[in-house]
C-alpha cells in the first residue's frame, strides 16, 4: 500500500468518524443531514483509496462513487425537504426524542416507539 493510499484511508476514516459522531450526537436536523454528507464524503474517498488494487485505473470504483454521490444527493434532498416541512409545521428543527426536556415525559408515557 503506497503512502498516498494510507493518507487517503486515514483522511477518509477521519471524515467518517467525525460524520458518524456528528450524526449521533447532534439534535439539530440540519446538522445531522450535514453529518451524513460528511460521512458520505469519507466513504467515497475510502472507496477510491481501497478500490485501487494496483495495476492501473479501475473504472468500477469510479463509476460506483459517482453513482453513490448522486444517490446521496437525492437522499440529502429528500431529507432537507422533510426538515423544511417539519420546521414549517412545528417550528422546530429537532425530533421530540432528542429533546432533553421532553425525554423524561415521553419515556414515562411509554408511548414513544
Amino acid at each position: 500500500m503506497t503512502g498516498s493510499v494510507v493518507l487517503f484511508v486515514v483522511t477518509a476514516s477521519a471524515l467518517i468518524g467525525i460524520g458518524l459522531w456528528g450524526f449521533l450526537v447532534q439534535a439539530h436536523l440540519l446538522r445531522r443531514v450535514l453529518a451524513f454528507n460528511v460521512v458520505g464524503s469519507g466513504l467515497f474517498l475510502l472507496f477510491g483509496a481501497l478500490g485501487w488494487r494496483g495495476g492501473g485505473v479501475d473504472p468500477v470504483p469510479q463509476a460506483l462513487v459517482i453513482t453513490g454521490i448522486v444517490v446521496a444527493l437525492a437522499a440529502t434532498a429528500v431529507a432537507l425537504w422533510l426538515v423544511g416541512r417539519f420546521a414549517e409545521e412545528t417550528g422546530r428543527a429537532d425530533l421530540p426524542e432528542d429533546r432533553r426536556e421532553d425525554r423524561q415525559e415521553k419515556s414515562s408515557a411509554g408511548g414513544r416507539p
Binding site: A75, A79, L82
Partner: peptide, 9 residues
C-alpha cells in the same frame, strides 16, 4: 412528517 424524518435519518 416527524415519522418520515425519523425514517429518513
Amino acid at each position: 412528517i416527524e415519522a418520515a424524518l425519523r425514517y429518513v435519518l
